[in-house]
């Protein structure tokens, strides 16, 4: 048996009761996390739709190239922007309390 990460981020809606989402000492980073998290959520939705269309075989090779390139560059751009605010890709997963995580 092996040990998991002891600080694993188990989802906890109960924590929402006492957690302050925006820290006055790091407003820029917290706001960036919120905005970029929402953008990442939308990008993932578009990726899922693209995957669904790939699985269904409803994309032409040109559409596959254009869609793939757009999603790939959007992901790179989001991660680059996140890095400028000191955020890792995993930080863009927003905790929505009882609704779970955004991505």
């Amino acid at each position: 048996m092996t040990a998991p990460d002891p600080t694993q981020d188990w989802p906890s809606p109960l924590a929402e009761i006492s957690r302050l989402k925006i820290d006055p000492e790091r407003v820029e980073q917290d706001m960036a996390r919120l905005v970029l998290g929402l953008m990442e959520f939308l990008r993932k939705l578009m990726e899922l739709q693209a995957v669904r269309r790939m699985d269904a075989g409803s994309l032409t090779p040109e559409e596959e190239e254009r869609l793939g390139l757009t999603l790939m560059r959007a992901e790179e751009a989001l991660h680059r922007l996140a890095a400028q605010f000191g955020l890792q890709p995993g930080d863009l997963s927003l905790d929505l309390g009882p609704l779970g995580r955004s991505v």
């Binding site: 990726e47 693209a50 596959e64 390139l69 757009t70 999603l71 790939m72």
Partner: peptide
Amino acid sequence: PSSSGRDWLRERTLQHA
């Protein structure tokens, strides 16, 4: 890592599968 959009999308589709 994929260099073309088509390869990237195919790799991502494989990951979902």
